[in-house]
Design a protein around this nucleic acid. Structure first.
Length: 221
DNA sequence: GACCAGGCACATC
DNA sequence: GATGTGCATGGT
């Protein structure tokens, strides 16, 4: 039942929006940096910060790691929480330097579960950021849960509102094939509908998910 | 001017 | 363990 519903949601979203080609980013490190910068922040602001980092030619682990913290703060300022995120980026590059000599290719040899635990051990990297890095930067079959995932699945009655990250993640991973491309596209599409139609104060009249039953607090009813 | 945006850590009870 | 709060810019 859940399985069919998830597939239906995926199909409706894919038909409506088309492939999303996520994650926006040219390199694995750029994706990692973006995953931290986009925490509770709109992507348009993140894009400005990333453009600044590119212009300054420091969008590589070693280059960013030796940069003065104040310089990082200035470059990423448009992304908001810039002092906090400068520290978090520093923690990320410290982890890469300590464990992998700043060489991202070395991460390929590490088991996904161990990588996830290591990422969660970096201060400033929580479940969503870790999973975004695993899926989008490192191509591991890990489903990413975020506010949009929660909003859409709760509205469509797939899960109770009182949910934890793990239970929501399990809803997807236990009902879908562990396929990197599927997880990539599905999450991107959920974000897409999340910021298009399924907003906190949404305009749902043309929402691609309207054919499906809505349950909780949904203006489509 | 209020609200929202692809979270997380930490303090307090 | 649950709940509250600080972090900050930029678009709508």
């Amino acid at each position: 039942m859940i399985r069919e519903r998830l597939n239906e949601i995926y199909r409706l979203l894919l038909d409506f929006y088309g492939p999303q080609h996520w994650w926006p980013g040219e390199t694995r490190f750029e994706i990692m940096v973006g995953a931290i910068l986009t925490q509770n922040t709109s992507w348009s602001n993140v894009a400005k910060a990333i453009a600044n980092l590119k212009t300054a030619d420091c969008l590589e682990p070693d280059k960013l790691h030796v940069l003065d913290p104040a310089q990082i703060e200035t470059l990423i300022r448009p992304a908001g929480y810039f002092r906090l995120k400068a520290k978090r980026l520093r923690n990320l590059t410290q982890w890469l330097a300590d464990g992998y000599e700043g060489d991202l290719a070395r991460l390929d040899a590490i088991d996904t579960q161990r990588l996830r635990e290591e990422l969660l051990g970096v201060s400033g990297i929580g479940p969503e950021t870790a999973d975004s890095i695993l899926l989008y930067a490192l191509n591991r079959p890990v489903f990413v849960v975020d506010t949009y995932t929660a909003r859409v699945t709760v509205r469509h009655g797939l899960i109770e509102p009182e949910l934890t990250y793990e239970t929501l993640q399990d809803l997807f991973t236990s009902n879908l094939e562990p396929d990197v491309q599927l997880f990539n596209e599905f999450h991107a599409l959920l974000v897409c509908v999340g910021k298009g139609f399924c907003k906190p104060k949404p305009r749902c009249t043309a929402c691609p998910l309207n054919p499906l039953p809505h349950t909780i607090d949904c203006p489509c009813d």
